[in-house]
């Protein structure tokens, strides 16, 4: 199944709406709550990244019984050095953004930790595409 959502750049009040909607869909599809948790944690982080850095973007989520693939495509400044951005504590967020509790530089590493695969491609001054892939029901039962 395919689902599409829009993200408005700079609007922190609505940041997280797409994540919440996808979470609701996953609950209705009876996806294991442990999977839902890691999906939503990574997705929320990614969604806020778009709000914080880009002009706007789109989320498309593809859900089937074995995996969930989520693509976030934004129009924005892009990431000049992805490897550097992946380091913990690295942040380009403005002081205003940090004041709101965002931009601690934990975003990308935290996302990666919660996904099974993460692919980032970026073109400076054009935008960034993040793909988050989750394989379902891989958590050991006694987790």
């Amino acid at each position: 199944m395919l689902f599409d959502f829009e993200i408005q750049g700079g609007d922190f009040a609505t940041a997280g709406n797409a994540s919440s909607q996808i979470k609701k869909i996953l609950k209705q599809l009876n996806v294991d709550h442990r999977d839902i948790k890691r999906i939503v944690v990574a997705l929320y982080e990614a969604e806020v990244n778009v709000v914080a850095h880009a002009f706007g973007g789109k989320i498309s989520a593809e859900i089937n019984t074995t995996e969930v693939r989520i693509r976030l495509v934004d129009e924005g400044p892009g990431i000049p050095d992805i490897e550097l951005a992946m380091q913990q504590g690295y942040s380009t967020a403005s002081p205003e953004v940090r004041e709101m509790g965002f931009g601690a530089g934990m975003g990308l590493p935290n996302m990666k930790k919660n996904t099974d695969e993460m692919h980032i491609t970026s073109v400076v001054d054009e935008g960034t595409t993040v793909e988050l892939i989750f394989f379902l029901n891989q958590t050991p039962p006694n987790h």
Binding site: M1, K27, L29, N30, N64
Partner: peptide, 20 residues
């Protein structure tokens, strides 16, 4: 224990059919 009442069906593919 969780006992989610939001699921449309126990079986995920059936839940997807129902969601459609």
């Amino acid at each position: 224990n969780p006992r989610s009442m939001l699921k449309l069906d126990e079986d995920m593919s059936e839940a997807m059919r129902k969601m459609n």
